[in-house]
Simulated assay, not measured.
Amino acid sequence: MTRFGTQNEHRRIEWLKAVLRRIPAGSRILDAGAGEQRFRGLCSHLEYVSQDFARYDGKGDGRGLQTGFWEQADLDIVSDIVSIPVASGSFDAIMCIEVFEHLPEPVLAIKEFSRLLKDGGHLVVTAPFCSLTHFAPYHYATGFNAYFYQKHFADAGFRIVEIVPNGNFFEYLGQEIHRVPEIANRYCHFKLNFFQGIALRLMLRVLEHCSHTDRGSSEMLCFGYHVHAVKIRQ
């Protein structure tokens, strides 16, 4: 099938790389909800500290999408993300990447990030706008739109520097069409035949054409938002 609809993760990582490069060398950064610390390598110019609650084992409750294996042996801090045992103002930057949907109370996490950051500190967050059940049972929200960030970041003393939609309505549908063969096989015990596969390819072509002429459908639906904010409250 066409690659259309498959750029969700790639775009997120490229955006994260660009933002992290703008954080001054030597800054102390907390990777909140670090998991397997896959972004440690992007922080070679920074003092990197990892945190996670360290309960997910890759298998979860067996429902939805699971990784199968999850390694968290080398975390710097093991704690609840809304109560991290570090002094206030300990960090110059915090990143929290694709974590909010796994938090029972993400607003409390935002408030904790405000406590932990120095004035002028950077907060870098990505989370899905819409997501399938994954890492269950630790999956509490399907996603977050722009208004969530605008409201709760301001309330916690942050100024949003950049908020960028990742993809658009048509790309999101394309992503899910790519999943149809696997999901049909898993939940319907059904394998698509040649003609059904052609139908999916044709649908992807239609969506790709629409995406090329898109003028703002991300406000309806997208993969997720990428947010860079700065703490302003004294």
Rank of each mutant, 00 (worst) to 15 (best):
132 L>T: 14
171 E>Y: 09
205 R>P: 01
225 Y>Q: 10
29 I>L: 14
66 Q>C: 02
83 S>H: 13
170 F>E: 12
115 R>S: 06
52 D>M: 02
232 I>S: 10
220 M>N: 03
68 G>L: 06
132 L>K: 12
61 D>M: 04
193 N>P: 01
171 E>H: 10
182 E>C: 00
217 S>A: 05
223 F>H: 15
26 G>I: 11
150 Q>T: 08
184 A>I: 01
73 A>F: 00
32 A>S: 07
7 Q>T: 12
113 F>Q: 08
111 K>W: 09
120 G>S: 10
181 P>S: 04
21 R>A: 03
214 D>I: 05
216 G>K: 04
43 C>Q: 10
3 R>E: 14
3 R>N: 14
176 E>P: 00
188 C>M: 07
182 E>S: 10
101 E>S: 14
176 E>V: 01
124 V>I: 14
196 Q>N: 03
131 S>E: 15
137 P>M: 06
17 K>Y: 06
146 A>Y: 12
133 T>M: 05
48 Y>D: 10
168 N>G: 01
107 V>H: 08
131 S>G: 15
17 K>G: 08
188 C>F: 05
210 C>W: 11
192 L>T: 09
10 H>K: 14
44 S>C: 07
140 Y>V: 05
183 I>M: 09
103 L>H: 04
184 A>E: 06
16 L>D: 11
115 R>Q: 07
135 F>H: 15
188 C>G: 00
230 V>I: 14
122 H>F: 05
135 F>L: 08
148 F>T: 03
150 Q>F: 08
157 G>P: 13
164 V>F: 12
101 E>P: 15
42 L>P: 04
112 E>F: 07
91 F>T: 13
209 H>Y: 09
195 F>C: 08
194 F>T: 12
72 Q>W: 00
159 R>E: 10
72 Q>A: 01
108 L>G: 03
26 G>T: 12
79 S>E: 02
79 S>C: 07
93 A>D: 14
184 A>Y: 13
63 R>G: 02
150 Q>M: 09
217 S>R: 07
130 C>E: 03
112 E>N: 09
18 A>Q: 08
